[in-house]
Each structure stands twice: as C-alpha cells, then as structure tokens.
C-alpha cells in the first residue's frame, strides 16, 4: 500500500515538478486573444473545423486564416463569443439582418438567355452579365445560400434567394459573395422593405420584371419620410419606419413587403411570431 502510494505519488511529483519548471523556462508569449478564444471553445478537440484541435482553431481564427464560424459543436453562442473577443461586431449595438432586395424570381422576371452552366452566381455573372435581363436582380443560383454559415438562406423553387430573419445574424458573408449586391444589411427592427435593386427607369423595369420598383413615387406620397426615391429606386428610410406599412397596398407593382406578415412568394419560411427581433442573438 505504502509502496503504491509512494511510487505513484513520486511519479506524479516528478512529472509535476518537471512541468512546472518547463512552464517557467520555456514560456512563450501567446496572443491573449488566442487564449481567450481557446477558453470560449468547447475544448472537445473534435476536429470538426478541419483543424487539429481547438488550439489550432483558435490560432487560425486570430491570425485571420480561417473564418470564425467553423465550430459546429460550439454553435452560435461560441461564434458570438469569438466575435466579441475579436471585436468584429462589438460596434453593432442594434441587431441586423440581411435582406434580399429582389422578388423577381423566374416566374416574374425575364431572362435574356438560357443558362445551363455552373450553378454559381459569380460564374453566371461573367457570361454577358448574367442570364437575368435585369442588371441588378437576384440570379438565383444559390451562391449566398452556400456561403451562409448559419443556413439562414433558402432558394425558392423559382430561384430566388430568401433570408430567414430569425436565423440571420447579419454577418454579411452573403453580401460579399453576391455578384450583383442584391443583399443589403438592415436593422432587424425594420420589417418593411422595398424589394427591388434596379436603378433602371420605370418603363425599362416594367419590360423585364413584373414586381420591380418603377419609381412612381406613390409610396413616398402615401407615407412621406418613410420612403426615399434615389436614381429611379425607392427604398425604405429606416429612421422613420413607424407607418411605412401603409404604402404596401398602394404600390402598383407590389414590390414593398412587410416581413412581419410574410416572406416573399415561394419561400417556406413563416413570419416570426414575435414581430421583430429585439435583442442580439
């Protein structure tokens, strides 16, 4: 018994001493953020991120070589914690969500040619600026859907991207992959948006899209302050959103949508039970 206690205790003591000395002697300066992130991670060393363990992941996130959303076991809390440590969204006090400013799916907007190529918006955009006649509408090939780290984007059967307002964290990854800048980041509490991105004149828009903004100015007349017309395109003024919904019925092309009552046609998303997000996810 004594021998057992002494020998195991002895091994432990020697090991502990050696480690203690080594820790002092071989101390290496590490980025404090790296340690903080390591702390925030689940520490399972599962390798789901494709890197060797949590420390490798923390290192990669800090030096910016990998995107900080790869930790699936940690879920969104971990991602948020990492974002806080890195100060990415420290400035974003109000929660934001992405909006696809287009409703011109295949049934409503015209195409100038038939596209059978690579199912990627950026690839399609390189061929005569994309198959869609509208120069700024959603191409619907799902590049944003694949880029979204939260699975918040779906493509409808008629090829239109729709962002789920509850899953979206406003990270902006989709914005950077969209070749046509259709996706905008807007305050989450604003639910009324003009879903059109075309700065073409009204007559031209009418030619290629049934649901595009024709800059008729009716919305701005109905609810002054709530809408601004700029270069033949109306947009909701997020400073004054209180009565914006009143113009929805008046819009002749129905391109204004209130997300608290429903998502664009063809989407499987249901409007949120709570009218709008109120605090950070």
């Amino acid at each position: 018994m004594l021998a057992a206690v002494l020998s195991i205790g002895g091994i432990g003591f020697i090991a502990a001493t050696a480690l203690g000395i080594a820790a002092k002697k071989f101390a290496v300066e590490v980025d404090p953020r790296e340690l903080a992130i390591l702390e925030a991670l689940p520490g399972a060393n599962c390798g789901a991120c494709g890197l060797p363990g949590c420390s490798g992941y923390a290192k990669g996130v800090v030096d910016g070589s990998i995107y900080p959303t790869l930790c699936t076991p940690g879920g969104s809390e971990t991602i948020q914690a990492i974002a806080n440590i890195l100060g990415i969204e420290a400035a974003a006090v109000e929660p934001k969500v992405g909006i696809v400013a287009c409703q011109g799916d295949n049934s409503k907007a015209a195409n100038k040619y038939r596209y059978l190529g690579l199912q990627d918006c950026n690839a399609a955009q390189k061929l005569a600026d994309g198959p869609k006649t509208c120069p700024s509408g959603c191409l619907g090939l799902g590049s944003c859907e694949r880029a979204c780290p939260f699975g918040a984007i779906e493509m409808t059967a008629e090829n239109l991207a729709v962002i789920n307002r509850e899953k979206c964290t406003g990270c902006g990854k989709c914005v950077s992959v969209c070749p046509r800048q259709v996706i905008k980041i807007a305050p989450a509490e604003a639910t009324v948006h003009v879903l059109c991105n075309s700065h073409d004149k009204g007559a031209l828009v009418r030619k290629y899209c049934q649901i595009g903004c024709i800059a008729c100015n009716i919305c701005a007349k109905t609810v002054p302050d709530a809408y601004v017309i700029d270069k033949f395109l109306a947009s909701a003024n997020y400073e004054h959103i209180e009565n914006a919904a009143a113009a929805i019925e008046k819009c002749p092309t129905k391109c204004i949508r209130d997300f608290s009552t429903g998502y664009p046609e063809g989407s499987s998303f249901l409007p949120p039970t709570i009218p709008a997000k109120t605090k950070a996810a």
Partner: peptide, 11 residues
C-alpha cells in the same frame, strides 16, 4: 454528363 467543365475552369 454535359457538365460545364470549361466554364468552371475559366471561372
């Protein structure tokens, strides 16, 4: 399989 190979490579 009529894959758009050249387009993908060009991309």
């Amino acid at each position: 399989a009529t894959l758009p190979l050249v387009q993908s490579i060009r991309f």
